[in-house]
Simulated scan of single mutants.
Amino acid sequence: MKLGVFTVLFSDKNLDEMLDHVASKGIEAVELGTGGFPGDAHCKVDELLADEQKQKEFMEKIESRGLIVSALSCHGNPLHPQKRIAEKADTLFDKTVELAGKLGIPVVNTFSGCPGDHEDAKYPNWPVAPWPTEFQEILKWQWEEKIIPYWKEKAACAEKHQVKIGLELHGGFSVHTPATLLRLREACGPAIGANLDPSHMWWQGIDPVESIKILGRENAIHHFHAKDTVIDQPNVNRNGITDMTSYDDMQNRAWYFRTVGFGHDAKVWADMISMLRLYGYDYVVSIEHEDGLMSIDEGFTKAVNTLQPVMVKESVGDMWWA
């Protein structure tokens, strides 16, 4: 396994500065944004697609520092009911898949998106309750008319470019749990998998170790994020887990993101790393820093220091004891 970082946190640095910085910390892989919510500070998709020499120079910069690219990420909402928003995300996704194929990058990460509740809707609708029954009707329409048809087409496109799709399980989007990921994968094929982020499991009440088992049995983990979460139970009692309190009002939120090791201790992270290996994941653990209590450098460094001792680097080989 390799320790990586989602480089959006270093968007103030140019590509060379960012690569030098993360390599100096012992990072082995970078996850690069191509636009959408992550921005494109380190990977200009249109420029690279238009020039094979730039593609070569781009990869040489990364590889010369002993790094790999674990994924290209273009998180957006390609199912947004407003066409201008959906089309922008859709076009970016297609370009990102094409670029990943040309550069030999095996994974493209994004969100599943979330549609509206009818053809003339203006805003996404995220049903999370089975009653009143209108919510079930909305959910059925979304999956049958929007979600499955869209991702079936995109899965075929990704397979053509020899790229896997890592959908981040994230609240507010149609694919947000192991069950919804597996539902889409069953309908669209094995190109669809998870970019599994334990921080989003914790706040939904899902044990990340168990989510690894559920998805790992189906070989459905394509990428893995490392981000932590604190659950503030008194605020959960007041607000519930679908808390709409602003992220910057951390004292009053039911949950909030922390850097690795500041929501759950190293043993919990060791359990997740071990479970990933048990179920055949031998790829990148990509640090994502969204901690409102620490600077970028402090949070990133502490995450590296927590994860490095628990990473599994070598396969066991023969079991000499049995």
Rank of each mutant, 00 (worst) to 15 (best):
K2G: 11
V5H: 04
D12Q: 15
K13P: 14
K13G: 08
D16K: 06
L19C: 08
D20N: 12
V22R: 00
A23V: 06
S24M: 02
I27V: 14
I27K: 05
L32G: 01
G35T: 03
G36L: 06
F37Q: 08
D40N: 14
A41P: 08
D46E: 05
L48A: 03
L49N: 05
A50C: 02
D51Q: 10
K54R: 15
K54V: 12
E57T: 14
L72C: 00
P78H: 01
L79P: 00
R84M: 11
A86M: 05
E87Y: 15
K88Q: 08
K88R: 14
K88D: 12
L99F: 07
K102D: 07
V108K: 01
N109H: 09
N109Y: 11
N109F: 10
G113W: 00
P115F: 06
P115D: 00
G116A: 07
D117W: 13
A121S: 11
N125P: 01
P127I: 01
P130W: 13
T133Q: 15
E134W: 13
F135I: 02
F135L: 12
F135K: 08
E137P: 00
I138A: 02
L139E: 11
E144V: 10
K146E: 10
I147N: 02
I148G: 10
W151F: 11
E153V: 10
K154V: 02
A155W: 11
A155S: 13
A156E: 15
E159S: 11
H161M: 11
V163S: 04
K164P: 04
L169Q: 03
F173I: 09
L181R: 04
L181W: 02
L182W: 14
R185N: 02
R185A: 03
R185Y: 13
R185I: 07
E186C: 05
C188E: 04
I192M: 00
L196F: 14
S199R: 05
M201S: 13
Q204A: 08
Q204H: 04
I212H: 07
L215Y: 05
L215H: 02
R217N: 15
H222T: 02
K227H: 06
T229N: 09
D232P: 05
Q233S: 09
P234W: 10
N237Q: 12
N237G: 14
I241F: 15
I241T: 13
T242P: 00
S246F: 15
Y247P: 09
D248C: 13
D249I: 15
M250T: 10
A254Q: 07
V260D: 07
F262I: 00
F262A: 01
A270V: 10
A270F: 12
M272K: 08
S274G: 12
S274E: 13
L278D: 12
G280R: 00
Y281H: 04
S295K: 08
G299S: 05
G299V: 01
A303K: 07
T306M: 15
T306Q: 07
L307A: 09
E314V: 09
D318L: 10
